[in-house]
């Protein structure tokens, strides 16, 4: 089963997105968060992101959703530190909508490529 990691500057945002996504993917256990710094302050931590990716990985790949700025650059650093040990990619998608779709796709056992492409389709979601 594909794993998912939510990266945000804020632990509350990351946990909130997890809560929202699992409401639509009940019982899915592959979603991990890396929100904020270890001491609870706002920021992103490449080492915590790397550990979340390792925890989320069950051998079928991991899709990462990140917020802006250092969310992306820290996630890229985390992926580099794994040196190819995990099949992992950052989805170019909005973090909330992307996480919900990713969780649904992963929870029904779809493969990595499909989870990633469906997640990235949320870029086109119209709201009004």
């Amino acid at each position: 089963m594909v794993g998912i990691v939510i990266v945000s500057h804020s632990a509350k945002i990351a946990e909130g997105i997890k809560e929202l996504a699992l409401q639509m993917a009940i019982g899915y256990e592959g979603l991990y968060t890396a929100g904020g710094l270890e001491d609870g302050s706002i920021g992103t931590d490449a080492v915590r992101i790397m550990e979340a990716i390792q925890n989320a990985d069950q051998g079928d790949g991991v899709v990462v959703l990140a917020d802006l700025g250092s969310g992306i650059i820290s996630a890229e650093t985390a992926i580099d530190m794994l040196e190819g040990a995990v099949k992992v990619q950052i989805a170019d998608a909005p973090i909330v909508e992307g996480a919900i779709i990713a969780a649904v796709e992963a929870s029904i056992g779809n493969p990595f490529e499909q989870v990633l492409s469906e997640t990235e389709k949320t870029r086109e979601f119209r709201k009004i």
Partner: peptide, 16 residues
């Protein structure tokens, strides 16, 4: 390694 974990902003991975 410490900077990329503890700085929190983009300067963490960059200086790290």
């Amino acid at each position: 390694m410490t900077l990329l974990s503890k700085v929190g902003g983009a300067s963490g991975p960059l200086y790290g």
